[in-house]
Nucleic acid binder design. Structure first.
Lengths: 221, 221
DNA sequence: CGATTATCGATTGTCGACAATCGCCAAGCA
DNA sequence: TGCTTGGCGATTGTCGACAATCGATAATCG
């Protein structure tokens, strides 16, 4: 039995993360420490530490003596995030393929099953969660603490971009058929195959998002 | 003309980083905020922020309400750091190979030239710097801001491990012959070849360090 | 005597006050 | 007019004080 014992800093960071990821704080929005400290009911130092954490996650940027603001989303942003994700997940997939055992297999299959179930669901939020969860599962199964830590921040950013594009252009991808090759590749036990599969998945996702992004830009122009 | 305008936090973090990397703060050493604030001549909040930064770089760890301490070095630590580096540098090398042009070529060659020059040098510090600089150059040439940011922290950790093993077991590797394949692979323009080359380089480095580490452990036991 | 509880010193967690710095706009000047 | 300068409001940068928490040890109790 354990009770919640997160520091104020962690809770403040989590809250702000949610606000950004769910689009209640839009790209470019300015964040002032005093305002936030009043809204969150905490001190400025606490808010400051939370903001610093979000900065290392690349969700916000700081301009010294000027202020904090939510990062902008751009094609380059998309490209960087997805390529980086490809590199990290590639390593993760390799390791999982090599180290696979009964437990890993079952967890991987469970994550994929959730994905299949979510596909039928009308809830777009659940579809997003299942998708992100699948990717996180693979990385965590790699048993590589540093990788998981690095991936955490990146996956938040992916979630942000994901929800953002979802809200502008509802996704129509087929979760099951898009992810099955990854599962099969990992279960094959061949690290090269596993890495290739997940990397190609990432490249396709990037291409999709870039297309939507361009479309969106054409519209608003 | 620009003057140094780093915040106290940044300067404190830089100083602490040096202390750790150069082995003046050994693994396991405890760091108390008040002591550091007195030594650095700055406030506790400032020290705290600097420590948090070093924590995200994975150089120190925090135990809530207990204190900060310099991370321990272990085989797992070595393995995680080198494999992660392989993934990031692999992406970097790919991108450089694909996007190569006159400027990139010259910078790459310059970094390699420095390596060759350092090899003759007796100064082990310069050899380390040249080696690390070569790797950093490749990553930076990729033109991928997020990658460079991620790599920065990791490369500090590599530098730490590097200097640490160097101090216990002076390196004997042949800088030129070890790195030339990377240069040639990148200049070939083939991303797969480039990635493979730099990844194999990393794997060899890891194997070397692990061997030395095991030897060191046997000695001290 | 063993186990539980109270106490203590040390350290971090949190906070608001004051100083430093920035961007902006108006005033002054050539 | 066009440029520099000075002042102003807003915001962050820095700091030390006080509270909360931890681990270890001493005190207490059955």
């Amino acid at each position: 039995m354990k009770i919640d014992k997160l520091s104020f800093v962690d809770r403040a960071a989590a809250q702000l993360r949610i606000e950004i990821l769910h689009g209640r704080l839009l790209p470019g929005a300015r964040l002032t420490e005093i305002d936030l400290s009043e809204q969150l009911g905490t001190g400025r130092g606490t808010v400051r530490a939370a903001l610093s954490a979000l900065e290392t996650e690349d969700l916000i940027v700081k301009q010294p003596y000027s202020g904090w603001s939510v990062r902008d989303i751009s094609e380059k942003e998309l490209w960087e995030t997805y390529t980086l994700r490809g590199a990290l997940e590639g390593l993760g997939a390799r390791l999982v393929a090599v180290g696979k055992n009964k437990e890993i297999e079952s967890k991987l299959k469970a994550a994929f099953a959730r994905l299949q179930q979510a596909e039928a669901s009308e809830d777009s939020g659940e579809r997003v969660d299942a998708d992100l969860g699948f990717h996180r599962t693979i990385v965590d199964l790699a048993g590589h603490a540093s990788l998981s830590r690095q991936y955490f921040g990146l996956s938040n950013k992916v979630e942000w971009l994901y929800r953002w594009s979802e809200s502008h252009w509802p996704s129509r991808i087929d979760l099951t058929s898009w992810h099955r090759p990854i599962v099969e590749a990992i279960l094959s036990g061949d690290p090269n195959v596993a890495e290739k599969a997940i990397r190609e998945h990432g490249e396709s996702s990037l291409a999709d998002d870039l297309r939507d992004f361009a479309e969106l830009r054409r519209r608003s122009a």
